[in-house]
Amino acid sequence: MSLTELHLALLAGAPRHGYDIKQEHDSWFPDTRPLPYGQVYATLARLQRDGLAEVVETRVDGGPERTVYALTADGAVRLRAWLAEPAAPTGAGAEEIVRKTVSVLHTGIDVAGFVARQRAAHLRRIRDLQATPPGAGPAERLVREHLIAHLDADLRWLELATELLPSPDDQPTVRPDEREPA
């Protein structure tokens, strides 16, 4: 995900200050890592430097001073261009599940245990996501369905990998003479 363009999208509805942007982001993506404030302010500074956002107001509502940002015309063009392009299909990556599964494939260490633990972790997460909180709108449900679809894809890939892995009775593929010297 491009955070720069995502910030433009977060500013598209109305001018916002950094705190608002973080809150809006976290409500759009309730099941992903919350956006750190530091990242918001760094991104806003970059957008302003590049002419994609501008300061339109400084508010003091009895608390700390807050700088309100709005999209510029260039920012709106950039946002539309970003949305006009399809997202790159996820290719072979180096995600943790791939790294670990491939490591299990190569070492043969506790294959059955690894598969059981990984399946359980993914299935628990799918179940949590299926329990849509009361009051969730269509957009939030869609974001959750997207996450579920990805977890499901991981599990299907893991199933394929399991068929390629040694069966629980097979011996580990690492022999003592292949180990790194201590």
Binding site: R119, A120, R127, Q130, P168
Partner: peptide
């Protein structure tokens, strides 16, 4: 994912229960 427990079969035997 709706279950309390998964029993995974492989080649006619139980591969794992979690």
């Amino acid at each position: 994912a709706r279950a309390d427990r998964e029993i995974r079969l492989r080649r006619g035997t139980i591969a794992h229960q979690v």
